[in-house]
Amino acid sequence: MSMNGEYLRVTPAELERALKDPEWALELAEEVQDAQEESEPAPVEARHFTTHQTWHLLGFLLQRFAFPVDIVHGEEPLADDDWGYGPPRYLAPDRVRLAADVLRQTTYDQLIQDVDPSELAKAEIYPWIWDSPTSLEWARDLFAPLTEFFRGAASTGHAVLVWLD
């Protein structure tokens, strides 16, 4: 079984409801995920996005880059319920907007500049595949879509729920 980084765009009204009723939010997340499996919208339009197993690598790289928003783990608690590998958290619309602005100005090459795979192994970054310099390329194909997902969320004033599943 693998650990995947998951995101769900929600309106401010949906965020309010999710904070009061986390079970409803989990049901919404599952409904959106199921619906998107069939339609596969572009990341900028998608309500759900996954970074699959690259979440920990992306988190390490963004933290090392001094990224101002914790887009991998979220910043505010949503619930105490376990949504897979711990409770969900969220990013308020203003934090989503800041994340989108900084992501737009950040390249994957900037994130991996001067990173040695041994740093990832030493930090025990999941999924423990850091035995060659090319392993840093693993998350490249998800970074641009993640940037687009946040751009779409920011452009509509959405908050983002974040969890590991």
Rank of each mutant, 00 (worst) to 15 (best):
G86K: 01
F60K: 01
E124R: 12
A123G: 02
D131R: 15
G74K: 01
D131C: 05
G59N: 09
P41C: 06
Q110M: 13
A144L: 10
P133R: 10
P41G: 03
V69S: 07
A66T: 02
T134K: 14
F49Y: 14
S155G: 12
M1H: 11
V32I: 12
K20V: 01
F60A: 01
F67C: 03
P22D: 11
D114K: 02
D131K: 06
E148S: 14
L19W: 03
I125R: 01
L164M: 11
G74C: 01
P145Q: 06
P133Y: 02
H73M: 14
P43T: 03
D21A: 15
A99F: 07
D116M: 00
L142Q: 14
R140P: 14
V69T: 03
P117M: 04
T147H: 03
A29Q: 02
E23V: 12
D101M: 08
V32Q: 09
D21Q: 09
R151Q: 13
Q63S: 07
F67P: 05
L19Y: 11
L15K: 12
A139G: 01
Q105R: 05
D116F: 06
M3L: 04
P43I: 07
D34P: 11
L120N: 10
F150E: 13
A144K: 08
H56D: 12
V162M: 05
H52Y: 12
L103S: 00
S39L: 08
D21F: 11
P22M: 07
Q33D: 13
E45M: 11
M1Y: 01
P88K: 08
R17V: 13
S118K: 12
H158N: 13
V96L: 12
G157N: 03
P93K: 14
P87V: 05
I129E: 05
Y108C: 07
S2E: 10
Q33W: 04
R95H: 14
D101E: 08
F143S: 09
M1Q: 04
E31V: 10
D82S: 11
R151G: 15
P127Q: 10
P145T: 03
E124W: 00
V72C: 13
L111P: 08
A42Y: 08
A13Q: 15
D109F: 05
L19G: 14
E38T: 15
V96W: 04
V162G: 03
A99G: 07
P87H: 06
S132M: 04
I112Y: 01
P12H: 07
P88F: 02
W128S: 10
W24T: 06
H56S: 12
R17C: 11
D116Y: 09
G157T: 04
F49I: 02
I112K: 13
R104A: 11
V72G: 00
R64Q: 01
L19R: 15
V72T: 06
A154P: 00
